[in-house]
Simulated scan of single mutants.
Amino acid sequence: MSSKKLTCVCLAFFLVSCQFFRLQAQLQVGYYSTSCSMAEFIVKEEVTKGFMSDNGMAAGLVRMHFHDCFVRGCDGSVLIDSTPSNTAEKDAPPNNPSLRGFQIIDNAKARLESVCKGTVSCADIIAFAARDSTELTHGIGWDVPAGRKDGRVSLASEALANLPAPTFNLNQLTQSFASKGLTQEEMVTLSGAHTIGRSHCTSFVTRLYNFNTTLGQDPTLDASYATQLRQQCPQGSTNPNLVVPMDPSSPNTMDTGYYVDVQANHGLFTSDQALLADAATANQVTQNAMNTFLWQSKFANAMVKMGYTGVLTGNAGEVRLNCRKIN
């Protein structure tokens, strides 16, 4: 590598590092301790209410944080409603109809506005809710650095361009996460969120029928599991609401059942089973499958890091009074 190229690479790395440390300095644990001391408690109460009514909401809120951060950064843009002149992120195919939990965020925001008007951002509410949802499903919680501001732009086209698809192979997954500053190991760790929640049949049905020009079924999918899935997702069904649990053995518990499933070729998505395509990622799957505490600890750390992705701070954004529309 020439000295000029080396200088450019070093400069780029320096700028990225400076940006990350600047954000670390601006986001703070306990950010609302003086401006709205009840903020995290109120969010947790509303998440708990939603969970008690429908325990599947926990998976929805963890997924919402992920889908928010991967599009324009963690700026609450996934919450903005579409208008006659703009189709927003929440109505893009990766989010609609599968993303849920919006009412829980609305409820938390309404309560916060009544006691601390214009103080707590929607982006921070999502981050708190994801942590609380993890705890409610028996995962390890974490301190959430807060101080994010809300974005003013939400485009369906950007959701399609930035969210990793369930059909991705390992290289595509690695590149998608790397574009957000996350390592391959963090990608494997965060994929474990699929241990809770459910999926629409439309996200994986191509693995069951007409996989390619020569195969009807994806050969990386266990045959008996494929038979079970075909019963749950009949070929040619026009029902868009058919869903199956992503980790059938414990769909409401943040455990390592997901990794055990992947080892047994029971990964629901192509992107799940792709984790065995490389020796390094396959080894991480094995380590996670064997040690629940190890994976839960890594998951908490990876969620904190993901929560810094492209955040807006200071005057770069706003604190929305209604999470569904810009001020």
Rank of each mutant, 00 (worst) to 15 (best):
R100F: 08
L155H: 05
K109G: 05
S33F: 00
E186W: 12
S199P: 02
D143E: 11
S224K: 11
F102K: 12
K44L: 01
L99D: 04
T34F: 02
A178W: 04
N252T: 12
K180N: 14
V120M: 00
I126T: 12
L79G: 05
V260Y: 06
E45S: 06
A110K: 11
T253C: 01
K90E: 04
V47Q: 09
K49Q: 14
S53Q: 09
A161D: 09
T214A: 03
F13I: 15
L61I: 05
V62T: 10
N212K: 00
G236E: 07
N291K: 04
G192P: 06
G60D: 11
S191W: 03
T313R: 04
T214D: 00
V285T: 04
C10T: 08
P93I: 00
A300F: 05
L163D: 01
M52C: 09
T134R: 07
E318C: 09
A277W: 00
N212Q: 02
L61N: 10
Q273Y: 03
C8Q: 15
Q228L: 12
H200V: 13
G314S: 10
N55D: 05
M290F: 06
I125R: 00
V311A: 06
K90N: 11
T286H: 12
A223G: 03
N241P: 07
C201M: 01
K149G: 12
G50W: 07
W142H: 12
I80C: 05
V311K: 01
R131H: 06
Y31V: 11
K109Q: 15
L275P: 07
A264W: 06
V304C: 08
G317I: 01
G216M: 05
L321N: 02
M246D: 09
E89F: 00
K5G: 12
P219A: 01
M290K: 15
R324G: 04
N301W: 11
Y32Q: 12
G139W: 01
R320C: 03
N301K: 15
P94K: 10
H138C: 04
P97A: 13
A282C: 07
T202E: 14
Y258G: 02
V244M: 01
P94Q: 10
I105E: 08
V78W: 05
V71I: 13
A146P: 11
V78I: 15
P240L: 13
E89I: 15
Y225R: 10
G139K: 10
D81V: 01
M57S: 08
I104S: 13
I104P: 08
K180P: 07
K325L: 06
L208S: 13
Q172W: 00
Q26W: 00
I80F: 07
S33D: 05
P234G: 06
L61Y: 03
A302M: 06
V304S: 05
N169K: 14
A129T: 01
Q284K: 09
P240R: 07
F128A: 12
P166G: 02
G216H: 10
